[in-house]
Nucleic acid binder design. Structure first.
Lengths: 147, 147
DNA sequence: GACCTGAGTTGTACTGTGCAACCACACCGC
DNA sequence: GCGGTGTGGTTGCACAGTACAACTCAGGTC
């Protein structure tokens, strides 16, 4: 690997971390009613059209107990509901309630606006490329959760 | 903003979050002796050649009390040292000790290797562009911590 | 000197998290 | 069928990271 590539790798590593740290802080300020974790989980449920707690844990590299508690809280808040899977009684399929969909949409709108502001002066081609790099990175060569 | 750009923005948002969640988990597995926070702070000290606790807090959008405790722990562990600033007695300049430099280098090596593996099949041009997008994003149009 | 500002610490409380132990059901080999 | 093994999920527990507020100490301003 060339030294230019090596230094790019270091930058990617470092900047990803800066991003992550700031994300948490600003999510708290931007939408205190829905933590970043909750927002992420709700978003995943919407995107996937309902899934199991185990799937969430695997996708976000979280312990199943953590997801279990988050899910319990979201259910108490009336944002998601659990349907027992008729095909497998061990499984609970999670899905958004109407209220969950509503609050998710609202938070998504505000986050989207903030991102749009921040990215306003980026050429569209760069945005598209940036997005595709991130997807490619997270998809990984083989799904490994390297970092 | 076009719809292609809009959807790119959503993807950026979503994938950044996935990255962040996984980063934390894999840092714990990869180098349990140095938490992701500690690693990040040490890295910043090395990069900046020593700075104040307040600077760290500002850069990572952390509360000063949080940084204060982290710094205290790192000092107890012998990884950093505080030098009172002779020019301003309120200020403590933080800097790495030899031990701190050593462990930082070691963890950096292992992280770098993991990233290199993950990014091994990326063309260099893409790596460089990806890195520059991240830097540009974090620098922000005006330094705002949008997310 | 009185006052305001900025750096840092400490008390307190809470959230997110992982690990380990556990329960309940499903699947598999016999 | 039936016992062993595996998988989805919950609960008990401990701990790290974090924020907020109240505080101390040092500087600068007038």
């Amino acid at each position: 690997m060339s030294s230019a590539a090596q230094s790019a790798v270091e930058t990617i590593q470092r900047e990803m971390t800066v991003f992550a740290r700031r994300a948490r802080a600003s999510a708290g300020r931007m939408h205190p009613e829905l933590s970043l974790v909750s927002y992420t989980l709700l978003g995943h449920l919407e995107e996937s059209g309902g899934c199991r707690a185990t799937d969430l844990a695997a996708h976000y590299a979280l312990d199943k107990s953590t997801v279990s508690r988050q899910v319990a809280a979201l259910e108490r808040a009336g944002l998601i509901e659990r349907r027992p899977d008729p095909a497998d009684h061990r499984v609970q399929v999670l899905d958004l309630t109407a209220a969950g969909r509503e609050i998710l949409a609202q938070v998504t709108r505000s986050r989207r606006a903030a991102f749009r502001d921040r990215l306003a002066d980026w050429p569209e081609a760069d945005l598209v490329r940036f997005a595709s790099y991130l997807e490619r990175y997270n998809a990984g060569p083989d799904g490994t959760d390297t970092d």
